[in-house]
Design a protein around this nucleic acid. Structure first.
Length: 292
DNA sequence: CACTTGACCTGTCCGC
DNA sequence: TGCGGACAGGTCAAGT
């Protein structure tokens, strides 16, 4: 899924929907999706109330009103959908949704609240996970110790991006943008979109970027992330928000999933290539390799 | 150490 | 229609 705009959309939604609710029951069908043992669950999850929903990079943190939190990573195909009994009963497959009544075939974990509403963690590919962890241990997770700055925080300036890129001078710029220790929350979609905006070929080495190019790339990263957040994120195949609804950013995307369509800037055909092991979309005219 | 590749899973699409 | 292979938005671990 889910890159920063999608995870942030869910965070905002859940923060409105589940804060104050008391967890009354938990069930799961796949241990890797929820590795905690019975004892931890009954001691710290059952009976706890939701205090707040936070996000760092692509990770959601649901703080409980005790010393524990639920940490959730949706990886590629995870969904977190909240349903009251009535809403679930009425759920079909309207145009703005991908899912009907829950649980469905991909449901891995169900949190039930004392008012009988439920939060469903669905994940087709089973890469995602949810786990209960003491709040005090969260900052000790390697990922949180090394993850880079949040691009939508006011403290993230183009100079910060330049400094972060210093650490990965030998990488291709696309690989650097996907590296969560450089910058938090960018994935394949927004890497391609911001590189197109900055007219940079994704294989351009970081070391060869000028200050002006980094500044432009910074502007484009912030622009595409804010635009996507405004559009409720991107739905390619699986992503839905906390209500089970799709995001509409891809209608506004310039290159992602638009191979063989004309570049909106120059009209040349958009190509799909492979960079850093990932499918990558470029306009070969606007985004020249430095050697070309 | 810095960087690249394969593994983790299921589902879908494309070519033969 | 059936079947094999490639590919899909993310991160780790293992390999070079």
């Amino acid at each position: 899924m889910p890159e920063l705009p999608e995870v942030e959309t869910i965070r905002r939604g859940l923060d409105q929907l589940i804060v104050g609710k008391e967890i009354s029951k938990v069930s799961f069908d796949w241990t890797k999706s929820f590795p905690n043992d019975e004892q931890q669950v009954s001691a710290f999850l059952l009976g706890a109330k939701i205090q707040q929903v936070r996000r760092r990079a692509k990770v959601l943190i649901i703080d409980l009103d005790n010393e524990y939190s639920l940490i959730i990573h949706l990886k590629m195909t995870g969904q977190l959908v909240y349903r009251s009994v009535a809403a679930n009963f009425g759920a079909g497959h309207p145009n703005d949704s991908l899912i009907g009544q829950l649980p469905d075939k991909s449901t891995r974990v169900v949190l039930q609240f004392s008012d009988n509403s439920r939060l469903f963690f669905n994940d087709q590919r089973k890469f995602g996970w949810m786990r209960l962890m003491p709040k005090i241990e969260i900052s000790n997770i390697d990922f949180f110790k090394t993850v880079g700055p949040e691009p939508l925080e006011p403290s993230f300036t183009w100079q910060v991006l330049r400094r972060q890129l210093e650490k990965r001078k030998k990488l291709k710029i696309k690989a650097a943008l996907l590296d969560q220790t450089v910058l938090a929350g960018i994935g394949n979609i927004y890497a391609d979109e911001s590189l197109w905006g900055a007219k940079l070929h994704p294989e351009t080495l970081v070391i060869s970027l000028t200050a002006r190019q980094i500044h432009k790339l910074y502007d484009e990263i912030v622009f595409v992330l804010k635009l996507s957040l405004d559009k409720g994120g991107s739905t390619d195949k699986n992503y839905v928000n906390h209500e089970g609804k799709k995001g509409s950013y891809l209608e506004f995307a310039k290159v992602f999933r638009r191979e063989n369509e004309p570049c909106p800037r120059c009209g040349h055909d958009i190509q799909k290539i492979r960079v850093a092991g990932r499918g990558t979309h470029i306009c070969p005219h606007c985004q020249k390799k430095p050697s070309d």
